[in-house]
Design a protein around this nucleic acid. Structure first.
Lengths: 105, 105
DNA sequence: AGCGTATATCGCAAATATACGATTAAAAAA
DNA sequence: TTTTTTAATCGTATATTTGCGATATACGCT
């Protein structure tokens, strides 16, 4: 180790990478768009729209929920999902800050 | 299939997801920041900065190169990497468009 | 209570990602 | 020409992701 390898990554970079990971699948990007367009959706609606099985859609929802981009509210036998506006704005800020710190952007 | 499951994902969503995938690791986010700060870097400089081995750093560079966010120019025995400004701006536009299409953002 | 509906979770398989050391290749330096 | 330096690639191990069908759970309805 020549000079000063850092031990871990910066929190900012870890957080941005984690949000990016949640958005790193076209199905999850589409889910975000649909939830924005329709305001809210039950899982069945998303399953009808996406070329994936119910269990796979459920897994993608879980990943989006993990980083907080969406929220799910149990409504009788179904679950109603919607965007978590606060976290969406946090994500927007994270990406915007990165890109606007770049000379080229 | 009830009504009209689409067969594949929209190109826009696939492209955004692919860029997000390339940014979905803190090492790669840090590489982008370093290349912006220093304008350009040889691999050894990045290896000194990152808590990863030379071969692993090389693999992360390959992933960033795959989506075009960086370019590598061979310079004697070393390779000099820099941001690909055109693609960085494309990435910025992709994320900005998504977030600004959102009611909450 | 029993039945149908909706969704999360389990179990599994295949593919991909992450990380490293060792090796290779190519150029510079000795 | 041999040695050193630099970085890509290979081989390997492990972990994670993606996808599905089957199952479990929870609710509303009859």
């Amino acid at each position: 180790m020549a000079i000063a390898k850092i031990d871990i990554f910066h929190t900012t970079d870890q957080e941005l990478a984690d949000i990016a990971k949640a958005m790193a699948h076209p199905a999850r990007v589409q889910i975000l768009r649909v939830l924005n367009d329709k305001d809210q959706c039950i899982v069945g609606d998303l399953v009808d729209l996406l070329p994936l099985s119910q269990s796979t859609v459920s897994q993608h929802l879980k990943e989006l929920k993990r980083v907080g981009l969406i929220r799910g509210e149990i409504d009788g036998p179904r679950t109603c999902y919607c965007l978590n506006e606060r976290v969406m704005e946090k994500a927007k800020t994270a990406f915007t800050s990165l890109f606007s710190s770049m000379k080229c952007c």
